[in-house]
């Protein structure tokens, strides 16, 4: 009897195959967004609903976080500055840190956790319960209704949330500074605006647009391509948050390099 032979593929090859297939799928998903966004139907009502869900419903969490970040960062920075007798620089330091990095980053991370997980779980459960199939058989484009609307909403809402977080963080910082250094509100905010440039605000907004897009597209992708079953819903929600956060940090790093190059060039 002939001996059976088994074709064995090394695990690394299989994993590489899986990685590149996944990457190609993800690119196709993003490409489809840019193809679909231009053509009707535009689903304005659903975009508005998503803006409300993503923007307005995130306000309590974002408000609290932004305010606390302002207070904590001011408190932590004071000892270092006071060693050099430079506590009067606190408003400038805080404004630069909040507007350039902390505001966008903290807001994006909170949104990735709150909004990303919710989008991932919602779309994934719709897939598991055949609601996406139900749309397809009714001649409705589920990608347009579910993905395009949510990605637009996250992309539009994140810069607004970032500006709101920046404001609250600065207010938190002001309360802390005013109690310890007896600085008036006008003096504090004059120093805040003197320290930041148009480039800081502009880059913060552009960066936030990318963060919002990332959270939306990653969460929709993970939800839309989740495996069947309730286990898949949990995995999709989790993967949406983890992947969004990972990409946000990479984007933050890239934006830092680009903005520094512009500033120095």
């Amino acid at each position: 009897m002939a001996e059976k032979t088994y074709e064995r593929r090394p695990t690394i090859t299989k994993n590489l195959d899986k990685f590149f297939t996944g990457l190609a799928d993800a690119f196709a998903f993003v490409k489809r967004f840019f193809q679909e966004i231009w053509f009707p139907p535009y689903e304005f009502k659903e975009i508005l609903r998503q803006c409300y869900e993503i923007g307005y419903r995130s306000l309590p969490l974002i408000s609290l976080t932004g305010f606390i970040v302002g207070i904590v960062f001011t408190n932590q920075s004071r000892p270092s500055l006071s060693e050099f007798g430079a506590t009067s620089w606190l408003p400038s330091l805080i404004s630069v840190a909040v507007v350039r990095a902390m505001g966008p980053l903290v807001t994006a991370l909170i949104a990735a956790g709150k909004v990303g997980s919710s989008i991932g779980a919602e779309i994934s459960s719709m897939k598991v319960t055949e609601q996406i199939d139900a749309m397809e058989v009714s001649a409705i484009n589920p990608y347009k209704y579910l993905v395009v609307t949510r990605v637009i909403a996250t992309t539009l809402m994140l810069p607004i949330l970032v500006m709101y977080t920046d404001f609250l963080a600065l207010m938190g910082s002001y309360i802390n500074v005013s109690q310890n250094e007896l600085v008036s509100m006008s003096t504090f905010f004059v120093q805040v605006f003197e320290a930041i440039s148009f480039l800081d605000i502009f880059s913060s907004i552009i960066k936030s647009l990318f963060f919002g897009f990332t959270i939306g597209i990653v969460s929709c992708y993970k939800g839309y391509n989740s495996t069947k079953g309730t286990e898949g819903v949990g995995k999709a929600a989790n993967a949406s948050v983890v992947m969004s956060m990972f990409l946000i940090f990479i984007e933050e790093l890239l934006s830092l390099q680009i903005v520094n190059a512009i500033r120095n060039g």
Binding site: Q131, A134, V137
Partner: peptide, 12 residues
């Protein structure tokens, strides 16, 4: 074509 799904697939 009307398709009635096993779990009804009503939009939650």
């Amino acid at each position: 074509i009307g398709f009635s799904f096993q779990n009804s697939a009503l939009y939650d």
